[in-house]
Design a protein around this nucleic acid. Sequence first.
DNA 1: TCGTGGGATGTGTACGGTCACATCCAGCTC
DNA 2: GAGCTGGATGTGACCGTACACATCCCACGA
Lengths: 349, 349
Amino acid sequence: MTVDSSADRAPNIRDVARLAGVSYQTVSRVLNDSPSLRPETRQRVLDIIDEIGYRPNQAARALVTSRSQNIGVLIATRAATYGVQTMLFAIEAAARDAGYGIAVATTPSDDQSVRAAIDQLAGQAVEAVVVVAPQVRVFDLLTAVRMRIPCVLLDSTRRHQARGVAVDQFEGARLATRHLIGLGHRRIVHLAGPRDWIEAEERMQGYLREVSDADLIIEPPILGDWTADFGYRAGQELVNRHDFTAVFCSSDLMALGLLHAFREGGVRVPGDISVVGFDDVPESAHFWPPLTTIRQDFAEVGRRAVGLILAELAGEDNPPAPPIRPQLVLRSSTGPPGAPTVDMERSRR
Amino acid sequence: MTVDSSADRAPNIRDVARLAGVSYQTVSRVLNDSPSLRPETRQRVLDIIDEIGYRPNQAARALVTSRSQNIGVLIATRAATYGVQTMLFAIEAAARDAGYGIAVATTPSDDQSVRAAIDQLAGQAVEAVVVVAPQVRVFDLLTAVRMRIPCVLLDSTRRHQARGVAVDQFEGARLATRHLIGLGHRRIVHLAGPRDWIEAEERMQGYLREVSDADLIIEPPILGDWTADFGYRAGQELVNRHDFTAVFCSSDLMALGLLHAFREGGVRVPGDISVVGFDDVPESAHFWPPLTTIRQDFAEVGRRAVGLILAELAGEDNPPAPPIRPQLVLRSSTGPPGAPTVDMERSRR
DNA sequence: TCGTGGGATGTGTACGGTCACATCCAGCTC
DNA sequence: GAGCTGGATGTGACCGTACACATCCCACGA
């Protein structure tokens, strides 16, 4: 019958209160940084908290405040890629700095799976959702579901600018294409990403715009799937064509596979064909030849997404920020058409 | 004063009960699949739930059951790697299948950050923690913190077998080394991972064991950091040595950088030097030359970890499962010492 | 001296579920 | 027909916290 704090259940706010000789409400005030507290009272409570290892119960707090302190991250791909992981880690770090936790749900992109993932996150009572790597259909589905919570889309530039954070894919593709044109290339093939992906579409549009602005012949883009394996297969086919001098790949990995196929097929890069990638994954500096590519700051995308979410949760208006500018990284896989194969020195970084 | 269900707050269990003409407890029974319910009653409740879009409040449920239905994933690295992401996604998928959500905390490996990450997860009231990519210090810290919840470590083979799931890194390293020895190599350099990482240590031990079993000269391993950049720098130094004929790299990425440096330095692979990697990242088939490496099934590791956790949460004993066996993947970066450079055909998969 | 104001602290209640227990009623046995 | 049994359902209490409000006390000025 005696009040015993050594019970096996976790200590709660009343245990702290009793030991500190105050009411539970005072403890609550300490936890929530209430201004009207005598410093010595606050300290006494803090000491007890520390001593008995008290931790506020998130469930109880969430129940009464209806704020879970959790942000959901919906990842609409199961493929392991540098970009997705970098964004995820940046989101997590930024969220944690703001006192939020991260709940992750990955999913294939079919409707049913995405719905299930949304349910999953809703079940975790997230206060907001960051959608990573959205395909068009995922976006459409999200608008259909009409979530009652803030929702930020990554990589959804231009089309859905209001609710998205993104590197300017369109601009990145123009940079890549313009670089090739500037070197003198006139027939440029585009190895695109999946039709369904918003960013793939943006890159393709950027390529098309730049090519048509320069009055060049537009090659029908090859639709790929981001992977090195696909790039390899595409490369095997391209080896037999002799009507182009450069390839703009929508991902570094596809470029890697392409380089592989070209090498096997006796096509020299950049001597015969120049190749540009997209993403600037850390490995691309060590491809053979080191890959000229478009760098996008994935971590910044993640941080901005969290910033947007926090602002929205705080009820602030989000002034639409300018998209993040991508950057051309010059390495050794590009050169003027018909130039001799890269010499060794150029590939040093 | 009239009972109005169109309030802007989310519907709760009593709203459902009222509309279905039953008590809230009956609704609760429906939600928890209680056996003693008339089918028609159950159906009526389910219809109402569907109609008004009722979702059980996780916080309330967690409060009373003290079960959050959440599993924490502590990732003790901020580097984006194929292995970590593959494990994470597999964990998420397996957890979701079992009705659990995933809370992620990433962290640098210093003590203070890891503590903060643990606090973060504890704050999210996770029922268990999966620790990914543990360094020795992280493991020691975890034992010091003495968590009150189940905790599974990934990639902690042998040393902490009881609480870990892992690919047998030791065995993988032996496979790689034995392969080189079998080809006739007598002087094999090991490009190791960071000293602090358990799996790096295991791989190094495997290499050392195999080399000493074969009575070969033991080269002092070079301690790296998993990255392609490091492999590149290490390769630049190795180019000047002529006292070895093969390199076993502790990661595919280091191997990639190494290949880059060798190519620049005029060292032919495998003609002059054979190279073996570790991990079998999807790109390694497209390296130049395509990389012989050790495949480990990251997804299986993630799934098993969740299996272990679920069993422990259910109070079952975990029969210690055998470690997951890695597998040698033969490609074109290895050959007998002094053999001519790989011909093109061999690199086709 | 007393009313007043405000800082510091305590009390009641609600949040949305689950659990233990109570109740009800139909069907069965004797 | 009374008593028993067990399935179906309802009632009260409680989980741990935050919020609104009440209370207390002391300093201050009229």
